[in-house]
C-alpha cells in the first residue's frame, strides 16, 4: 500500500515537479491548488504527509497548517512547508503553526525524497 502525499501549491509546475519526484519513488500523490482546496482534500481523504506552499490565493500555507492541526486526523501527521520564503521570522511562524519542517525553493528532488522517506518511510 503506497504512502499518500498531499501537495498544495498554486503553481502548476511546482505541483507537477513534486508529483513527478514522489511518484517516481512509489508514493501516491494528490494535488490541491490552494489552501482551501488542500484543507478540503485533507478532510475528504487520509494522507501520510502534506506538503504546502506558503503564498497562495485564499488560505495561505500557515493558516492551512493551523487548520489541519485542529483536525484530530492530522494532529501528528508530518506537514512540510515548501516555499520561497526563507526568513527566520517566517520559519518561526511555521514552527509555531505546527509545521514539521521548512523547505526553501528551489528544492532538489533527491533531497525532497530523502526528507519524505525519513518522515514516512
Amino acid at each position: 500500500m503506497p504512502k499518500k502525499v498531499l501537495t498544495v501549491d498554486d503553481s502548476a509546475s511546482i505541483r507537477q515537479m513534486v508529483t513527478f519526484t514522489l511518484k517516481s519513488a512509489g508514493y501516491e500523490v494528490v494535488e490541491a491548488v490552494d489552501g482551501n482546496g488542500g484543507l478540503a482534500r485533507a478532510q475528504a481523504d487520509s494522507f501520510d504527509l502534506i506538503l504546502t506552499d506558503q503564498n497562495m490565493p485564499g488560505m495561505d500555507g500557515l493558516n492551512l497548517i493551523r487548520a489541519l492541526r485542529k483536525l484530530p486526523a492530522y494532529g501528528t501527521t508530518p506537514i512540510l512547508m515548501l516555499t520561497t520564503e526563507s526568513s527566520d521570522q517566517m520559519k518561526s511562524l511555521g514552527r509555531a503553526a505546527g509545521a514539521t519542517g521548512w523547505l526553501v525553493k528551489p528544492f532538489d528532488p533527491q533531497k525532497l525524497l530523502d526528507v519524505v522517506k525519513r518522515l514516512v518511510g
Partner: peptide, 13 residues
Amino acid sequence: AQGQMQSGSIDLF
C-alpha cells in the same frame, strides 16, 4: 529572497 538557483535550505523542526 533567493538570488541564485541552488537548492534551498531544509529545516526539520
